[in-house]
Design a protein around this nucleic acid. Structure first.
Lengths: 200, 200
DNA sequence: GCAAATTAATGATTTATTCAAG
DNA sequence: CTTGAATAAATCATTAATTTGC
């Protein structure tokens, strides 16, 4: 038969297994050298090129994030809805004074616990020179998002800025406070999360 | 259970979007008045207090710095150890492609698909009367107009980039069916080596 | 059972964003 | 302020799953 080569790479189960294992072990953005090694190794199980490996990690990482984001956002939303219904009236003026505020915010999308390095498949694909120093490379590339750290909060104490509730108290130094109109937002990164249209 | 569902603010996707947009637009340390306005506005999308806004900006800013610092040190470290490794093979070649593109596009008129805020959101939350220090925070680039046009560039097939064939061609999706052992990755030893990284 | 039709996954490309050096 | 390097996000396109009518 004519080769009729398919236009795109089709990973064999073995290749897929290995790639996934590598991913699980922490590899996210292999550099050229690593890609080279991985490709060479995987070529034993079937046709493959460097770009396939490169793309695979790109896609896998991206779709992982995507999945996580979707999940989190759904979760947040439900939580938020329930919370709003329950908490509507209560808990409104509880903290007029000092309440040790911490940095709130769950903003980060990814901070999921990354599986710790198993025996370390990654060592096999690190830049030449073996493990040692180079292994930091892999670690550093594992997850871009970082776990929040404690920040200095001293500046905030003794400030009155955040005492403003949204409630209609007499605004100390503010203007009429008209409700700004909604703007049609289209964020670059929250696309499928667009399920929210809760008014108030 | 007490009605207090959660002890901390949980931003809705809309709120998050808007906050991030503001941050992107240059707002870093809103003053009380700005916080007030922002809070009022965001309360339309869910429960929120002034302190949430304040903390959000604090945290976001701090984490930006943190990320920067981390990246810097990481980079220094890597620079030292990979002085002689050229490892940007893939990206390098990829970017050559992009160059071709962007030179071609000339960036004549911004992006298209993602309508940003119809107007500069940051203006709405600047100090009253305008001017002042804060105004320097705001980027002065306005959102580009749009051009939904799609470039019909000749597909640059023939990417010689990333070519890394490693063997004689074989059928696209055929698997060799050799029962080669998967090298040591099989999670037989899932111990925490611990010594793998964490260099700094 | 079995293809055509439809949908879901995922490989491959393109576009946008970020960070920092010049 | 501009630009290059790197990356992430969005999108295109093809293959695999699956559904469906016969």
């Amino acid at each position: 038969m004519s080769p009729a080569a398919s236009s795109r790479w089709c990973p064999t189960p073995e290749q897929l297994m290995i790639l996934e294992e590598m991913y699980r072990s922490g590899i996210r953005t292999p550099n050229a050298s690593q890609i080279q090694k991985i490709t060479t190794h995987l070529s034993f199980y079937g046709k493959i090129e460097g770009k396939n490996v490169f793309y695979w990690f790109q896609n896998h990482k991206a779709r992982d994030r995507q999945k996580l984001r979707r999940k989190l956002s759904r979760q947040l939303q439900l939580q938020q809805q329930q919370q709003q219904q329950q908490q509507q009236l209560y808990y409104y003026q509880l903290n007029q004074q000092n309440h040790q505020f911490q940095g709130y915010l769950d903003y980060s999308t990814g901070s999921s616990t990354l599986p710790q390095f198993p025996y370390d498949i990654s060592n096999s694909f690190l830049p030449q020179g073996g493990g040692g120093v180079a292994s930091t490379q892999v670690m550093n590339y594992t997850w871009k998002e970082d776990i929040p750290q404690r920040m200095e909060m001293e500046k905030m104490y003794g400030h009155d800025w955040m005492m403003m509730e949204t409630g209609p108290s007499s605004p100390p130094c503010a203007r009429p406070l008209q409700t700004l109109e909604l703007f049609p937002i289209t964020a670059t990164n929250l696309k499928e999360e667009g399920t929210t249209s809760k008014q108030f």
